[in-house]
Design a protein around this nucleic acid. Sequence first.
RNA 1: GAGCCCGUAGCUCAGCGGUAGAGCAUUCGCCUUUUAAGCGAGGGGCCCUGGGUUCGAAUCCCAGCGGGCUCACCA
Length: 518
Amino acid sequence: MNNIDYKKVKAWPFQEAIKLKNKVSKIANKKVVTLETGYGPSGDPHIGTFAEVLRTNMVINCLKEISDFSTNLITFSDDLDALRKVPEDYPFPEKLENYIETPLSMIPDFTGKYESYADRNNNLLKSFLNKFKFDYNFISSTGYYKNGKFDKQLLKILENYESIINIILPTLRKERRESYSPFLPICKKTKKVLQVPVEVIDKKNGIIAYKENNQYKETLVTGGNCKLQWKVDWAMRWSALNIDYEMNGKDLIPSFELSSQIASFIEKKIPSNMTYELFLDDKGEKISKSKGNGLSIDEWLNYGSSESLSLFMYNNPRRAKRLHFDCIPKSMDDYRKLFNSMKSQDSIKKLDNPLWHIHKKKIPSTTYPIDFTNLLNLVTALNTTNNKTIKDFVRIYLKEKLSVQDEQELDKIILLAIKYYKKFILPHIKKRIPNIEEKKAIEKLLQEIKKLEGEISSEDYQNIVYKVGKEVFPNDLRQWFISLYQILFGSESGPRLGSFFNVYGRSNVLLLLKETIK
RNA sequence: GAGCCCGUAGCUCAGCGGUAGAGCAUUCGCCUUUUAAGCGAGGGGCCCUGGGUUCGAAUCCCAGCGGGCUCACCA
């Protein structure tokens, strides 16, 4: 602890942490602050879920900075929830069709790698979270229900059954009101989660009755025999897990309000809350897996660093942001700018620097030595996917000597840049076919290069290019260079040809030139 | 219907009390080799409108007008 006035820090995770600290400080003997992120493992992990965990981590980081509370981040998987729709991104969608309405944790995993379908999705999410070294406590809803860890709250809900029903019913349509129950019995034979009308039989012993195939059946609400309808489930968790903080997307604002009302009939536990805006695609529509729009976590990490993804998630969570491929280079460059500005910032100003939050205040000593967009331009200009060629050119371009760490960082982003180039730039490049005059000139160039012997320097190559240019286009040397760029690289300008030929290598150059005059 | 967000350069956006900013686009200048892998210089703004707070508002508050999204079945 120190004398910094954290209220002056504008960074949102600090403001959230201050809000949380104020709330939690009023609780007697409070030592551990619990934060929840919840999600449904109905398919591949969603980038929104990931963003929520990442952002909650940033709040935790700040809370630790401004207080002595210890923290517990719960990542809660609602895996007793039923499968409603077969996801398209699963390898064997047809096999899931029979499992509609079955709890996700009771569906086998047909990839054969995991214990259940939910387990598979849970593990995919965990692998992302681990990649970012988050410290979290993973909880499976199914396990908690079955082991009776929610029993106390379930009985409390049954005790206040009428009051809770009265909160929810006005929000439902008439048809749904008939069948609504906060308790969803799980059929012992079919394992399906039933949405059926329920009658309370015995509040004290936790028994309800429901109608199935014209027969009344009785069941316990406890011990995993019933699942709670989700808004009630959410409220129940706040009490059972003693949640102090939870953020959610704006789509859940009405649900949060409703769950808060319900919570007042359980143990009155309502977490400190922040709502964030949703991610949109390049056309401004909500990102959803079924549409296949926007970006997945994997896609981002394929073309950009994990830091650039963190930075994107950090920025303006309360503002709707378009998430598409163009965001990656920009975020990569923003990261580098912030990294460089950090050096000259004092300790208070640093708290407002996103990098402080992204790296949990442990900022690395180096980053990549060149802007990503700059590197992309270079790769585009060279029109090559050869790591070594690119690296050699970066060395020439930067002039300065690179440290070992610089080289390592550079190697990493070169790989990313090559992938980005192949996917998003290369398909749009159109190389021009040379006209007869140009063909002759290139042929001449070829012959001249073939004549060269021994060690060939950049200047040798450059001289030849000029020599041929002067012979063939004596009055318009400029056009000669433009033509070469158009024909070789599909652009109006490019690298100095002498240097490029030198780095690219004689045999490669000959191949490249031959290609154009075939 | 209710809620949330956004209106800043031609486009995409950053800035969020103290001189109006970036990238892309655009205009002009610069290749017989010394980073054209671009470089240099410029143009372009009632910061949606109206009120309030303030010494001072693009920034904070209120109202309005546009645009978008979300929820109202499920989660």
